[in-house]
Each structure stands twice: as C-alpha cells, then as structure tokens.
Design a protein around this nucleic acid. Structure first.
Ligand code: MN
Ligand code: MN
Ligand code: ZN
Ligand code: ZN
Lengths: 136, 136
DNA sequence: TTCCGTTTTGTAATGATTACAATTCTATAA
DNA sequence: TTATAGAATTGTAATCATTACAAAACGGAA
C-alpha cells in the first residue's frame, strides 16, 4: 500500500495517460471501489477530499480511461452509466430490488460466435438481472 | 398475412393487454421490423400512417409490453434505448461503424452461473460490440 | 345517447450527458 | 526566477431522451 499512488501512476503512464493528480485519484477510486459506481457516486465521495473536483472532470477522465482501455462504461441500466475497471472477463448481475451490481465468473471468450463470421469483436458484455440472494 | 391484425391482437390478449389499435400497430411494427428500433424510429415510421400517434403513447406502450413480457428494452448503447420483441434467446452485436445491431445465435442458458447460487435470474443479455463484416 | 373507465395526447419537468469558453495548472526555456 | 505555451480543469449553458401529468378523446355497457 505504501506506493499505491506511484503504482497507479505507472499504470496510467503505460496507457499513455498523463497522471495528473485528479486522474490518479479517480483511477484509485475505481480500483478501491469495485461497486460499479455512477458519476454521481464518484463525485460525491471524492469531493470530500478534493473540494475543487468537478463533474466535468470526472466525465472527461472516465471517457479518457475508456478510450485508453483501463475502464469501461456499463449500460446495464437505462438511467445512469456505471463504470468498472477493465479486468479479467466477468459478467454482471443487477438486483432489481437493492440495485447492487454483482460480478460473477463467466468465460466470455467461450461464448460461441457462430453467426458472426467475419465480424471484429472488440467488447463483450454479459448482463443478468433479477433478485440477489439477500433480497429474496 | 390475411389475419395478421387479428393474430397480433390475440397475442396481446393472451398477455392481458387490451388490443387497442395503436397497440396493435406498435406491436406489428416490432414484429415486422427486427432492427431493434429506437422510439424515434418507431415514431417517425408509424406517424406516416397514424398521424395522431404521439411519442408518449409509444413510450407508454413499450413500457406495457415490457412489463407483460412481449418486448424488451435494450441498453446496448448509452444514448437511446432500443426495443426488441421477446423471442428465443439470442445475443446482440452492435457495429460501431454503421450502428446496426445484429442478432446472433447463442445459448444463453448454457452460460454458467457459478457465483450466483441463490440468485433469481429473470433476464440475460449478451451484448457484443465491434465492426461488422460489411464495414471492415 | 349518456356515462365511466381506459387510452391517448400535448406539454412541461427532469436529469444525465455534452459542449465550450474561461481559468488554472505544469513543465520548460529564457 | 519569470515568462510562456500547452494541457488539464472548471462552471455553466445547451442538448436530448425519458417521465410526469392533467386534459382530451375514445369505446363499450346500459
Ligand atoms: Mn465488474
Ligand atoms: Mn434481437
Ligand atoms: Zn438485492
Ligand atoms: Zn457495420
């Protein structure tokens, strides 16, 4: 944990993202909060420590992260986008009751792509919806 | 084709949807246009024949269809929702170039649900993105 | 025809996202 | 150190899909 800030900066640099302080903090937020947060959640949490942070910066930064491949935008629900760091393939389950989004293991690359011969597939998302165990 | 209108009405009635004329026409539009249309597309196409049709009715009707299980809302992209009739499991591929959304065969029920013991799964969506064959 | 519940409409409100010009920051050169 | 240019950030206005809601139109029963 000692050099977390530095380690995070390294990741950004590797992806050709200049590691400004706000960018590092937003990335760190995503790494430490694997809850698939909305922009609003990121904003209200980070604002406590970064009073000058603006929502525009969060939108800009998440767009940049997404373009550079270290974060992804989730469209599992209709109203607000949610964000996740890019990591090993996994699916997402959204509970209609509590609203939480759970990760679950799935080998997305195993999914057959029968009809898609000749298609270039860049991104695969698996979204499930229902009621989580705790909400039954 | 002779009794299409009547056949469609029957489907609505089976699902406890009163088959008003607009509802039948919107459902027929979805059945005949398997292009995963937006509300805007449905509206501008149907308006030609139904000049009094309002967007509010389309939103209301699609919500009703979705609640009753004969249509579903797709969140494959961030800006606008798209709609599809409910039919045998299939995945969706969105081409980033031309914007078209293709169906493809996938056995969604075969997807493992390892971590989701005790979860009640109501809906499964598989969204791929990339470049379609024609756009390469 | 009258009546009542349902459907539809038009429009205003909402709210997330984007656009954009102004300001602040940062690194480098003089 | 100070000046300067480019990049990052900010605040706010604009956009646009969706929702809310009250008024109007419709449709079947009596
Ligand atoms: Mn995740
Ligand atoms: Mn489809
Ligand atoms: Zn839950
Ligand atoms: Zn294409």
């Amino acid at each position: 944990m000692a050099h977390l800030q530095g380690d995070l900066a390294k990741v950004l640099i590797e992806r050709e993202i200049k590691p400004s302080y706000h960018r590092i903090r937003i990335y760190r937020y995503l790494v430490e909060n694997r809850t698939h947060p909305t922009v609003e959640q990121i904003y209200s949490d980070l604002q406590k420590e970064l009073p000058t942070l603006s929502k525009a910066t969060i939108y800009n930064t998440l767009k940049l992260f997404s373009d550079k491949g270290i974060a992804k935008t989730m469209t599992i629900e209709e109203k607000e986008a949610r964000y996740d760091i890019v990591e090993e393939n996994h699916g997402h389950f959204k509970c209609k009751e509590c609203g939480d989004i759970y990760d679950f293991k799935i080998d997305i690359d195993d999914l057959g792509t029968g009809d898609l011969n000749g298609f270039k597939i860049d991104q695969k998302d698996v979204y499930f919806k229902g009621i989580c165990r705790g909400c039954q």
